[in-house]
Design a protein around this nucleic acid. Sequence first.
DNA 1: GTTACAATTGAAACAAGTTATCAATAAGCA
DNA 2: TGCTTATTGATAACTTGTTTCAATTGTAAC
Lengths: 147, 147
Amino acid sequence: MRTLEQQVQVLRAAGYRVTQSRVAVLTVLAETDGVLDAATICAAGRELHPKLGRVSVYRALELLAELGLARRVHGANGCRSYARANWQEGHYLVCQGCGQVQEFPCDGLDRLVEQLGREYRFAVRHHLLQLEGLCAGCLDADGGSAS
Amino acid sequence: MRTLEQQVQVLRAAGYRVTQSRVAVLTVLAETDGVLDAATICAAGRELHPKLGRVSVYRALELLAELGLARRVHGANGCRSYARANWQEGHYLVCQGCGQVQEFPCDGLDRLVEQLGREYRFAVRHHLLQLEGLCAGCLDADGGSAS
DNA sequence: GTTACAATTGAAACAAGTTATCAATAAGCA
DNA sequence: TGCTTATTGATAACTTGTTTCAATTGTAAC
Ligand SMILES: [Mn+2]
Ligand SMILES: [Mn+2]
Ligand SMILES: [Zn+2]
Ligand SMILES: [Zn+2]
């Protein structure tokens, strides 16, 4: 789990300025476990940086996603929401109960992806694996009553 | 590969009416290998059913996706495009060269998903695996010059 | 074939989400 | 501290998706 300070270093190292807007967006994402859409991030970000504008939020999210510091999460009605991220490739669990998003490493997946590439003669450049279901906490809370 | 006739049966079996709008959308999707957005599907669908309206295209796509006859494909700038589909779960290859979308069966993936569920104590309900890269055809055409 | 009825449609108006513009600002550097 | 330029953000434009509701059409019963 990268700290905010480390994330800021990623920004700087990539040659981008460490601006109040970008830090605000990064901070908002760091303070939640779930997914947030641009409007929510903007509202929350204004408590840190009151002048924050909608447009900057969109621009920051796009940049942060490129750098692997944020991730656009695929939802049933579009992918308008983002979660914090620590890697560029997408391997994550989305809890349908509490909305929490959890990244996970992908050892087995990378092997599988490589194998699929050979099988279908396809040169894989990126891969996205998203699992939806119920997290441990929500399973316990439900007592197994979840459909 | 399900035929159009079989797809129509899926619609009917699920209790939905086989309307000109739905058949038009299904046909347009069947006639391409790639992904199409709603506007494009609407335009193409009007050659089959001139009265076809935008709204019906959105509604048809949502329904067809539910039935596993179409799939919303996750793109870099949102997921506004659809491809034909034969299953409800998402395992597919998206070619960045020609735009072709290819579904594939998921034996190994299902095992992996099950294992991940145990490892993270997460009850998986749905999974999405999307690989992006270059298909065999585009690899040959490029002669290996692709980045 | 005709009739009855609910599911479905589609034009129009609306709402939401996203991007272009461009003068003003502030981040990094000397 | 001042210089330079990337970045910002208000506004306006645009694109995408949804609501509404009277008209239509698919289906099954007659
Ligand atoms: Mn990986
Ligand atoms: Mn599967
Ligand atoms: Zn949960
Ligand atoms: Zn998506």
